[in-house]
Amino acid sequence: MLEVQDIHTNYGESYILQGLSLRLGQGQVVAVLGRNGVGKTTLIRSIIGFTPPRRGRILLRGEDITHLAPHEIARRGVGLVPQGRRIFASLGVGEHLEIGQRAGNGAGWSFDRVLELFPRLRERLRNRGNKLSGGEQQMLACGRALVGNPDILLMDEPSEGLAPLLVRELGRILGRLKAGGASILIVEQNLAFALRVADHVYLMSKGKIVHESRPDELLRNHEVKARYLGV
């Protein structure tokens, strides 16, 4: 579904991603783990086109999307749930869903179905983005990406700043999306959460992938966990 091939990404002079490759298959949930500042968000930014890589390629369904504009990449089927949620302060909940709406891959995520998935949002339909709680913002960020019916969903630390109860709720929602056939690339620092939802995990350090395995293998590999995650 998504193939990242040896990408190198800079912010001006600082060289962040130093030859990173990974793949996300159809219907898979893949987690990328790594400590603070290893470049996880930069990976997401490279894929969605905010900070295009200087070298390497990114393929979506075999098509090269490396140097397309972000809105083109989004329209071709990449849904983004960014770090920090980035809810639009002056838009109502309903408006977030309206501007994100597209037929996309035909998974059938409509305005109403998203509200069924997140009943809290229906109650707050007319509230502006800056009036929502953290949990509600996270649901809205997911909903905004879903109504575009993307082929793949990029989620950057979705559990960040959520109460444990909400993290569990988020896990359930991811489970439902996966059961519905969604392909998800999720970036996390929360190891337990990532291991619970992912089919495959990558570990990142200093802009490179340093380890990949099934989640249960990583769980048992204490040396790798200690070295790259500090646990």
């Binding site: 809105h71 302060a89 002056s90």
Partner: peptide, 20 residues
């Protein structure tokens, strides 16, 4: 709504598929 989204956070609006 798209214009306001662009005013609030142009990059995120692009990431949502809006041609800013």
């Amino acid at each position: 709504a798209m214009i306001r989204a662009g005013v609030d956070d142009a990059e995120m609006a692009r990431g949502t598929g809006v041609n800013v």
